[in-house]
């Protein structure tokens, strides 16, 4: 049936005499295989060697701090709303006087959990965050012994404090800076 004038019949001509020879086909195949013998390997030795990820790779989440080490998250709940997998739960609390060095805003997340078994790594939480707080890093989800280990608490997600561990903070910030 002709619907367009762009049809192009595929090549289905019958086999010719040479193509009928099994030996020829086997030789042809073997030649390609042997050529691949001497090519550069496509694989890498994974745990020792790692391939570089793209700048925008969507891996495990991290919670950001500002330069003074205060948590940026203000528990607005926008990431939890945006999450198509409903993996994020949080509980907000009000900042008490004297906690200004811990939390950037007057409200903060007292409890912040991401269920990594539910998470589909779509990146919507990062896109939704209006406070520059949640980011997807370039690490994979590691293995764990039980299910409860996959529910990441706030302490698992927070990046190192620049006051205590400036180098760890710098490294984590380096992953964020690209976005």
């Amino acid at each position: 049936m002709q619907l367009t004038n762009r049809a192009k019949p595929v090549d289905r001509r019958p086999m010719n005499a040479i193509e009928r020879l099994y030996l020829w086909n086997i030789l042809k195949g073997m030649m390609i295989t042997i050529r691949h013998f001497f090519k550069k390997k496509a694989t890498i030795q994974y745990p020792e060697q790692k391939r570089p990820f793209s700048q925008v790779f969507r891996g495990l989440h991290i919670l950001n701090r500002d330069e003074e080490g205060r948590e940026r998250c203000t528990a607005c709940g926008l990431c939890a709303v945006a999450c198509p997998a409903e993996a994020i739960t949080m509980e907000a609390a009000e900042r008490e006087p004297g906690e200004e060095n811990l939390y950037r805003e007057e409200k903060y997340a007292a409890r912040y959990e991401i269920n990594m078994l539910r998470c589909i790594f779509c990146g919507y939480c990062e896109e939704a965050c209006p406070k520059d707080a949640i980011y997807l890093s370039q690490t994979f989800a590691p293995a764990n012994y039980g299910r409860s280990g996959f529910i990441y608490k706030k302490q698992d997600l927070l990046i190192p404090n620049p006051v205590e561990d400036p180098e760890g903070f710098k490294k984590a910030q380096g992953e964020i800076a690209r976005k």
Binding site: S54, R58, I120, F121, G123
Partner: peptide
């Protein structure tokens, strides 16, 4: 196919379930 996935990764950050 891996190279195509790397192109996706550069654009959106993911390889298989691209979104």
């Amino acid at each position: 196919r891996e190279l195509i996935y790397e192109i996706y990764e550069e654009i959106c950050g993911s390889r298989l379930t691209t979104n």
